[in-house]
């Protein structure tokens, strides 16, 4: 790969973000820890009755994972803004949308993928039947990148502001309603022994669309937010 080519740029950025995440691996554990804590609170609040927990397990795990991703999203551009790396990224002679796509991918791998790994454990703690777990994993594999992509656009919009945590949640909620509905719909269908492919297919279609459009929207949003 020749230095300065688009593929070299993507590779360098991808390696940089993974290296940085590895050097701060404590941060990777935070969303997972958060998800574990929130999930363990539910049996304490609702009682340990197995039938009740099994009924709510899908929704609880999905919403918990969503909140954990929301928690991690703020770090997507935060350090790059603070140390000026984002300016360097924006001035690079490369398609910004592609670079941001690489950043979102690296962020998803370090922040969301560990959540998918622990999700079956959390679901089992809530007595989710084993035959529903594949539907849960399929829903998460499609829903989490979708949330990362949508969230990245909104994080980019708040890049020029100071306080953004609560605002980000407010902005993301309307966008994640359909994602939650279809992901939870797939799990609920699996729990009732019905075919759950249709909502998964909808999620897949939305993800394909978001993969193309979200990085471009993210680039446009970032240029607006940095225009001051």
């Amino acid at each position: 790969m020749t230095p300065g080519s688009t593929s070299a740029a993507c590779a360098a950025l991808f390696r940089r973000d993974l290296t940085l995440a590895w050097r701060r691996r404590g941060d990777i554990a935070m969303p997972v820890l958060y998800a574990v804590i929130v999930t363990t609170l539910f049996p304490f609040a609702l009682g340990p009755e197995a039938a009740l927990l099994a009924r709510i397990s899908g929704g609880v795990v999905l919403v918990t994972v969503l909140l954990a991703i929301l928690l991690a999203l703020d770090s997507l551009f935060r350090s790059d803004i603070d140390d000026g790396s984002l300016e360097q990224l924006m001035l690079a002679p490369q398609p910004l949308a592609l670079l941001l796509g690489v950043k979102i991918l690296a962020h998803w791998l370090t922040a969301a993928a560990p959540l998918i790994v622990v999700a079956p454990v959390l679901a089992s703690m809530l007595r989710m039947p084993a035959n529903v777990i594949p539907a849960l994993i399929a829903a998460l594999v499609l829903a989490t990148p979708l949330l990362s992509l949508l969230g990245a656009v909104l994080v980019a919009l708040t890049a020029g502001t100071r306080r953004s945590g609560m605002l980000l949640a407010l902005m993301l909620l309307p966008l994640c309603v359909p994602v939650v509905i279809f992901a939870a719909g797939a799990v609920a269908a699996a729990q009732e022994g019905l075919p759950w492919v249709a909502p998964i297919a909808w999620l897949g279609a939305a993800l394909a669309l978001a993969l193309v459009l979200a990085p471009m929207a993210c680039a446009a949003a970032l240029r607006i937010a940095m225009d001051a």
């Binding site: 502001t161 953004s164 605002l167 607006i224 937010a225």
Partner: peptide, 15 residues
């Protein structure tokens, strides 16, 4: 909320 979180009003309006 996004509009009011920017110091520069025009930038906030654009975002």
């Amino acid at each position: 909320g996004l509009y009011h979180s920017f110091e520069d009003r025009r930038q906030g309006a654009r975002a």
